[in-house]
């Protein structure tokens, strides 16, 4: 046999390198998957203890309005009603999305349809900077500007859902805007040309053709923004007032799932009911994040079919 024949029948250095490289990269990716599974496992095992170990009724957990796990009510049941936090979380999330959407869509239209040059030179960097500002800085500004502002106008302490909404509005604005920009850019040129050729004004073209075609993408952006708002912890915690009460208005102290978690988890003993109840809130947070994910996929699928 000649040396080339022999070499071809042996495992070459390159083949060994390839094998090793493939294993290394497989290891890295597996690690990510394992981490995700571990997060679900650990948070679920803690969060479910409230219901399985402490025998708290799930429905009571979701519907009761008194949150003081250390105290038992008249019937001897621990008071772990998470409704105030659930309402608080959904409240700030929905309100901030409602305010952010017109701004984000407007800004995106401005950047893609009205003044692309100005958009690229001014608005694009502005949006990128807004993304980059850390959430504690938003919280600090909320605390030192927004809260006093609300206090001066509406009275009260200034803390509450309204303050949280304002802070989150600015925080999710860049997310929704940049995803809407992508959605608008993906609308084929000839849609616009066809509409303009038929005598439509620019605004008619935008509102009737472009926005409609980009709708799934815009919705995805809004849901992404909501997911971010729902999961944001510190900025909200700094301005919402942290009172685990069912909010009756927008300017009295309230709380969200994340705010109670950040202020509470360090002050409870691991394994106690107080602690388990907090992990149940974390589990709820995790499941909501999953729900937002599913919603985004569902919108994506719907969009494809059309």
């Amino acid at each position: 046999m000649d040396p080339i024949q022999q070499a071809m029948l042996k495992k070459s250095h390159a083949a060994k390198l390839e094998r090793r490289g493939k294993l290394i990269s497989l290891f890295c990716i597996s690690l990510i998957v394992v981490v995700v599974l571990a997060i679900f496992f650990f948070v679920a095992s803690r969060g479910l203890a409230t219901f399985f170990t402490n025998k708290v009724n799930l429905w009571r957990f979701l519907s009761q309005t008194t949150w003081s796990p250390a105290v038992k009510d008249a019937s001897g049941q621990p008071q772990v009603g998470a409704l105030p936090m659930i309402v608080g979380s959904f409240g700030v999330t929905l309100l901030s999305a409602v305010i952010a959407t017109p701004f984000a869509v407007g800004a995106a239209i401005f950047m893609t349809e009205i003044a692309p040059n100005l958009g690229k030179k001014v608005l694009q960097p502005v949006i990128e900077l807004l993304v980059g500002i850390p959430s504690v800085v938003y919280g600090f500004i909320g605390l030192s500007v927004v809260v006093p502002f609300i206090r001066n106008i509406f009275g009260g302490t200034g803390f509450g859902i309204l303050a949280g909404t304002f802070v989150l509005f600015v925080m999710i604005l860049p997310t929704v805007t940049s995803m809407t920009v992508d959605a608008l850019k993906a609308v084929p040129r000839h849609y616009r040309e066809a509409s303009l050729a038929l005598g439509g004004t620019r605004w008619q073209t935008i509102s009737r053709v472009v926005l409609r075609a980009a709708m799934p993408g815009i919705l995805t952006g809004i849901v992404f923004g909501m997911a971010r708002a729902f999961g944001e912890a510190l900025a909200v915690q700094m301005v919402i007032g942290n009172a685990a009460l069912l909010p009756t208005n927008l300017i009295s102290p309230a709380s969200t799932l994340t705010s109670v978690l950040t202020s509470g988890i360090g002050n409870t003993v691991m394994g106690s009911l107080e602690n388990n109840a907090l992990w149940s809130l974390a589990l709820l947070l995790l499941l909501m994040s999953l729900a937002f994910n599913l919603l985004i996929r569902w919108i994506g699928k719907k969009g494809e079919i059309k």
Partner: peptide, 28 residues
């Protein structure tokens, strides 16, 4: 597909949840 989904989920997890997991696993 599973791997991509896992990455997507991880990237959309609230950072406080990641912190709490770290507390549970690394700290304790």
């Amino acid at each position: 597909e599973i791997i991509r989904t896992a990455i997507e989920i991880l990237s959309s997890l609230p950072s406080v949840v990641v912190g709490l997991f770290g507390f549970l696993v690394f700290v304790l």
